[in-house]
Every structure is written in structure tokens, then in C-alpha cells.
Computed example of a mutant assay.
Amino acid sequence: MNPLLNILADGTIERRSQEVTDWGARIAWTVATLLFIAFLYWLMRKGWQNRGASQSDLPDLLPAPAVTGEPRLEMSGRYHGSTTAGQWLDRIVAHGLGARSRARLTLTDEGVTVLRPGARDFFIPADRIRGARLDKGIAGKVLTEGGLLVITWQHGERLLDSGFRSDRAADHAAWAGTLINLSGATDAAAQHDPEAAR
């Protein structure tokens, strides 16, 4: 008979849990698991800090302007991160650019204002926009084909790709086309070759 089953006088079966016979081993395994998780977290945090330190040459972000011109396009969605242009896994974490968040984008003749609740807002001046494209992945985030609007822009000495996903995927094409025209990068090849967009 199964030692975990006990038949009562009225014929019902009572299930009993296995008794812990070695509390010392159970506690040791629990502590070891928690220490391992804490160590992994520390390694990830250290890697994030080291990546930020290696990007210390990146200038501070421009704040969102208080007053802008008439909006040409607006979009609500998510900011999925920024990378070195053309290198979709080389995440930029300096100045809060590595933090994924909700985002509201507004395009005016002055540039793109990115408002992020719970994260740092920033502004991309029109003369620093180098192009735009529809893509499917950035910084470890993979979506369906064309599910991501990627804006390529100059920040200091670096060319960056910043990925956004609209709540309405149909917005992406209009944004990409308008940004390409605004940047003057009419050559379609320049949208996929960061060096050609310089």
C-alpha cells in the first residue's frame, strides 16, 4: 500500500504529504538556489553597468522641447530600445536608452519628441534624422516582419537605431515614409546601410 494514502474507518482515503526527514539538506538546497539566482542577477547588473561605462562617450540626450510646431504625425505605442545602427544586438543603455517603456511620439518640422512615462523623455532633432525603416527586431526583441519602426539618427559621434512599435501597426509605413523624406535619405539602400546614410 502507498504510505502516502491512509484508509479511514468510513472507507474514505486520506492523502498525506511526504514528511521532510532531512531539514538541513532542504534548507541548504533552498539557500544555494537563492544564492545562485542572486549571483546571476549581480552578473546581469554588472554587465549592464559595464556596457553603460563603455558608452560614456555618448552625449546627454536632448530634452523634449516645451513648445513645438504643428504635429505632422503622432503615435502611441512602445519604445523597444536603441542600438548602434546596423547592429541590432548592440544595445545602447547610456542615458536611459536601454529602458523599454510605453512611448508617445510626435513628429513636427523640428524633429521627433519621444515622451516615455516612467522613463526619460528625449528629442531627436530633424537635422539628426538619417532615415527610417520597417523591421522585425531590435535589441533582443523580435516581432513580425514590419512590426517595428526603426528610426536611424545621429547622436554625438554615433549613429543609432531606435525601435518603436505603434499600437496600430498601420501607422508604421506613414512614419517611415515621412521620416525618410525629412532626412533626405531618398535612396532606399541608405535605409539599410547606416554608412550610406551618413
Rank of each mutant, 00 (worst) to 15 (best):
F39C: 12
S82T: 15
V20S: 10
L148W: 04
A53T: 05
W23D: 03
A196I: 02
L160A: 06
L62Y: 10
V31D: 05
A64F: 01
G118F: 14
G177I: 06
L148N: 08
H155W: 15
T178P: 00
R78V: 07
A99S: 12
D167A: 07
L8H: 10
R198S: 10
T152W: 01
W175Y: 08
E70R: 15
N50F: 05
A103D: 00
G156K: 08
D22Y: 03
R72A: 11
N2Q: 08
Q49L: 08
G24N: 10
T83K: 06
R165Y: 04
L148F: 04
P71N: 06
D57Q: 10
T108C: 02
I138T: 06
V150W: 00
N2L: 07
R158K: 14
A132Q: 01
T106Q: 10
R104Q: 15
I180L: 05
A64D: 02
A174I: 05
S76G: 06
V93Q: 04
A190E: 04
E110Y: 03
R130Q: 14
Y79C: 05
A176D: 01
N2K: 12
R130W: 09
Y41T: 11
P117W: 09
G156H: 11
R168C: 05
A173R: 14
A188H: 11
R198A: 13
A9R: 14
I37D: 04
A196Q: 13
D167R: 15
G118E: 08
T144M: 14
G24W: 04
A126I: 03
G184M: 05
G137P: 00
L107D: 05
T21Q: 10
L61V: 11
A28E: 14
N6W: 08
L5M: 09
T21L: 14
D161F: 05
L149F: 13
G140S: 05
T33Y: 08
W23F: 13
N6Q: 14
G47S: 13
R72P: 02
I27F: 08
I180M: 09
D60A: 15
R100S: 12
H155E: 10
L179E: 03
T21G: 09
R26D: 07
S166L: 05
E157P: 06
R91E: 10
I124Q: 02
T84Y: 12
T12A: 09
L159Y: 01
Q87A: 14
A119G: 07
G146R: 03
F164R: 09
W29Y: 11
R102M: 13
L73P: 01
G118T: 03
T113W: 00
A99I: 13
Q55S: 06
P3G: 07
A176T: 12
I129K: 01
T152K: 15
A176F: 05
A38K: 02
T106L: 07
L107P: 03
R128G: 09
N181Y: 04
